[in-house]
């Protein structure tokens, strides 16, 4: 029979809050990895294969026509670039909406703060999506696509802004879903047309003027177009600029954090 109480019991050490948070976020990210990919064989391979297959399908269907509008970039790469940037946004949004419910149980542990699961999942999303992006760049270069890394900082910046907007929206939708369950559905509806109005399929320059004006109101279109400009210096990025998505990202992200902070008492109920 087992001993009744462990004779080696490990004292639970008190540590600085910052160190505790780093440890917790690390553990949560590891857990996320296991839950997300652990159940499949070759789990991590799916991270790359999934967007690749859907891109090939979409590219095959509309690539022959839409591809003519972007002579500067091989169309599959154009599409992949847009999709992955958009994935940074929608992925974080989706995660934010589900995160509260999925992780409420964890809050029983003293070291886990309500925001930690969000941080871990958002970082995980950023990490996995960027990894797949890097892999696609390598595959692309291997297949003969010429990429320019002169403005890599612009690419990184665009990616981060897109991600921050996703985190902000995820927090806003996630918290409001606590009060109105419908917000989960609204979030789904909200993100479904994004692929059409974020310059993922067709460059802004190829659209009629009226449509250009409309689409330029979407900050995601700016970051997606600029990220292409970063990799392909000859790409025509129309009237996109970085200031607009930057201010949008800051506003949305901090609004999300504020919204979360204000409603923190409603978060820890089962």
């Amino acid at each position: 029979m087992a001993e009744l109480i462990a004779d080696f019991p490990i004292p639970v050490r008190k540590k600085s809050p910052w160190l505790v948070q780093v440890t917790v976020v690390k553990a949560l990210m590891k857990r996320e990895m296991v839950t997300r990919f652990g159940k499949y064989k070759f789990g991590i391979v799916w991270m790359i294969v999934e967007p690749l297959i859907s891109t090939i399908i979409i590219g095959f269907i509309i690539g022959r026509i839409a591809g003519r509008t972007v002579p500067e970039i091989p169309y599959p790469f154009f599409l992949l670039n847009g999709r992955i940037l958009l994935q940074l946004f929608t992925g974080s949004l989706k995660i934010g909406v589900n995160s509260i419910k999925a992780n409420q149980g964890l809050l029983v542990y003293r070291t886990v703060c309500p925001l930690d699961p969000f941080i871990a999942r958002f970082l995980f999303e950023l990490g996995s999506t960027s990894t797949s992006f890097v892999l696609f760049c390598i595959i692309g270069m291997w297949m003969g696509v010429t990429l320019s890394f002169g403005a890599i900082y612009l690419l990184v910046f665009c990616g981060l802004l897109t991600w921050l907007m996703g985190c902000g929206m995820g927090l806003i939708f996630g918290v409001s879903a606590l009060y109105y369950k419908e917000m989960e559905k609204v979030a789904l509806i909200f993100q479904s047309p994004l692929i059409f109005i974020s310059a993922v399929l067709v460059p802004i320059a190829a659209l009629p003027n009226a449509a250009q004006e409309f689409i330029l109101k979407n900050p995601l279109a700016h970051t997606i177009e600029l990220s292409r400009k970063a990799l392909f210096p000859f790409y025509n990025n129309s009237d996109t600029n970085i200031i607009y998505p930057f201010s949008c990202a800051i506003i949305v992200f901090f609004a999300g954090l504020y919204f979360f902070r204000v409603n923190r008492f409603s978060l820890d109920r089962d």
Binding site: R13, K15, T23, A27, G105, V108, Y109, V112
Partner: peptide, 27 residues
């Protein structure tokens, strides 16, 4: 932490993985 039935275990993970996680968040 409050030892109850609604404990912070992730249903899709095994007991071993859950124990590992609790150890990890305590450093």
């Amino acid at each position: 932490w409050p030892l109850g039935l609604a404990s912070g275990f992730q249903g899709s993970l095994t007991a071993r993985q859950n124990v590992l996680f609790v150890c990890e968040i305590n450093g």
